[in-house]
């Protein structure tokens, strides 16, 4: 099943092939079914140790990985930065080697700096999953988004997906552009110029600064969270102006394809990038479904990576 995915780490979507992505999605689909049964437990990772190492606060991603690990039978441990020795001045690499000495099998890492997860992965002998590094990539988010779209619409090829909002600071946008274009979707990036990174035009997506234009005919509207905590130096004048021009409301959504679905990686800023009426519309919003798919997609990733561990029982 996952014979095509033979990597030690999952650090980014960019280097993956279409077949690798599809094999992970196929495996994820199986776990969706498992997760809907009363007994959700497997022993795929029995005896394995999974460490969640989060340098940035996270609720849904961390709990999603924790649950994924537990359902696969791993011993899971959460470490967040405010408890760690990094507060005491230890360097990032020392933290990694220390953890590595405890012989974990998989470390899931989130870090505020782009490239930090890859730096750590270089220093450890176990598998590493990138749970988001700076504004670089968030591969499992892109996988769960793709799994959600595929289950809803049956395909990704040929769909028009508008990714809207704070593209500048978004690792979700970057991973999704890579994944969706590899799978044959037409991707649009919609943002005010101050939140559109220079050079985004080279990513293989169409660029729009007018949201009304960008939404026309879209099958999927993927909203991004306005990352106010990362903004220094006036990217935008105000939240009310942002909502007026770039917030998803009924009027703007009406420009997308009839019945177009709305996604959001969470957590949402209601009334800033998305109107509550849209976020809660059970006919259009598949935001909660994304959370469900998240656990399944992460189970697939952990499963696939565990099969590559040096001491794994080969079950091909």
């Amino acid at each position: 099943m996952t014979g095509l995915f033979a990597r030690q780490h999952l650090l980014a979507i960019a280097p993956l092939t279409r077949h690798e992505i599809e094999s992970l999605l196929d495996l994820g689909a199986e776990y969706v079914d498992l997760n809907r049964q009363i007994s959700k437990k497997r022993d795929t990772l029995r005896g394995r140790t999974l460490i969640n190492l989060f340098f940035e606060p996270s609720t849904r991603t961390q709990s999603s990985f924790e649950l994924a690990g537990k359902r696969l039978g791993a011993d899971t441990m959460n470490m967040s930065v405010n408890q760690s020795s990094l507060k005491k001045g230890e360097t990032l690499i020392d933290t990694a080697t220390t953890l590595n000495a405890m012989r974990p099998d998989i470390i899931v890492i989130r870090h505020q700096d782009s490239g930090a997860v890859a730096l750590l992965a270089d220093k450890v002998s176990c598998s590493v999953v990138n749970a988001g590094d700076g504004a670089h990539e968030h591969p499992t988010q892109a996988l769960l988004d793709a799994l959600t779209i595929r289950r809803r619409l049956g395909r990704i090829e040929g769909l028009t997906v508008a990714i809207c909002g704070d593209v500048m600071h978004s690792r979700v946008a970057r991973s999704n552009v890579h994944l969706l274009t590899k799978l044959g979707a037409r991707v649009r990036l919609v943002a005010p110029r101050t939140l559109m990174p220079a050079g985004a035009a080279t990513w293989g997506a169409e660029i729009f600064t007018d949201m009304r234009e960008g939404l026309k005919g879209a099958d999927i509207v993927m909203m991004l969270r306005l990352q106010m905590e990362r903004m220094t130096g006036s990217f935008l004048p105000s939240q009310r102006e942002y909502f007026h021009f770039y917030g998803l409301d009924r009027e703007k959504l009406a420009l997308a394809k009839p019945g177009a679905l709305v996604m959001h990686p969470g957590p949402m800023n209601r009334g800033v990038e998305i109107d509550s009426a849209i976020a809660d519309d059970i006919d259009r919003s598949i935001i909660n479904e994304q959370v469900e798919m998240g656990v399944a997609a992460r189970m697939a990733v952990l499963d696939a990576l565990s099969r590559q561990l040096p001491n794994a029982e080969r079950k091909i």
Partner: peptide, 15 residues
């Protein structure tokens, strides 16, 4: 161009 002509936060140019 900036709120209060203070040269910091930009004004609501769109609105």
């Amino acid at each position: 161009l900036t709120q209060g002509l203070k040269g910091g936060q930009m004004a609501e140019i769109g609105l």
